[in-house]
Design a protein around this nucleic acid. Sequence first.
RNA 1: CAACCUACCUUUGAAGA
Length: 420
Amino acid sequence: VATYSGLAYAYCRANRVSEALQLLTDMKAAGLQPNVVTYNMVIDGCGKAGEMDTALELVEKMRGEGTEPSVVTYNILMAGFGKAGRMTDAERLFDQMEQAKCAPNTVTHNSYIHGLCKFASLEAAFAHMEQARQKDFVPDAVTYTIFLDALSKAGKMDTAFQMFQEMRKGSHVPNVFTYNVLITGFSKAGKLEEACKLFQDMEKAGCAQNQITYNITAGALVKAGKIDLAMEMFEDMKRKGCSPNTVTYNTLIDGLGKEDRVDKALLLFQEMWKTGCAPDTVTYNALIHGLSRAGQVKKALQVFAGMKQQGCSPDVITYNCLINGLGKVGDLTEAYRLLGEMKRKGFTPDAFTYSAIISSIGTRGNADEAYGYYEEMKARGGVPDVFVYAALVNKLAKAGDLDRAHEVFQEMKSNGCEPT
RNA sequence: CAACCUACCUUUGAAGA
């Protein structure tokens, strides 16, 4: 049983859920009965793959075989519902647990709180915490980190930092996750000083920075336009024995592209292969974006071709970057070709795509064409946003079609888009 | 006796000034 369980776990970690499911069948065929732990590992694999329905079926199957779910089983479901935004189902789990006489633990509450932060509100999450506290829930470092993350993502860094202080006043020791969350928050809020200060504080606190800490901090430097410092951080990271990963490279390639240093970005891209960091869709997108904004559309298309050749799938963002770049240099033929290609491949052009297309249409006399794309977008179920409206109004106005421009402008407002 | 569950990082935008 242990052997099978281990293998099932490995499959799940590798995102190969179907093989793990097959393994359960094989086990039974071999006369072995999977236990809760085996099931939990596979159920978790399903949950992480977003297959909550399969996960639920497995729980039923397990029950049918006379094995009752454990707290961990419920926790797995709680986390899965939380990630999928199925908060009603998550709430119902507490009732089911009560019926099964299975007491929720810290992990159960933390997972639920995380879901609430993401899909309901911070207030709802706080309320749950207070309520659970009346029973026997004691918030831990993870609980704090979840709240700190939510506050950081909402840009409420003052509150976050206050909570961080409270946390330390209590007996909770901030860990790498805690610091990482806060550094991200400060970086997003444009507070580079504070972000860097926390990075340094970690050492004093005896909390070792990890790969993610470096990635976040390098990203913070990139965002602040300090690409050279970000590159230094990259060297520092390696010196300290912390290996860069694909995200590290992606961050830097993006930063270099935005500072108009695509040449250096290309060098890093080459380096990735040597270091065993496989470029992914994000890598290619960042690179293609950098090349496009530098006006090097030819090169961008070459990279795009290479991407496909490597078996890395383009996504909507890839196409958007290319279409945008092509539009800017006036290569409409190629831009339209790519628009067609993306549709053919089953991608849904979004507001980014249409705003790029509409803006790229020549200035003279093509108001109808621009308007046509706007209608196409709506017909395909797309929701135009400010950028699409702005591009369209602009185009119509420049073509002298003031009546229609005004009409679209009104439509925009009635669709809840405020002019900027 | 052990194996399973919760929190953190990267990519796409028009005009104008």
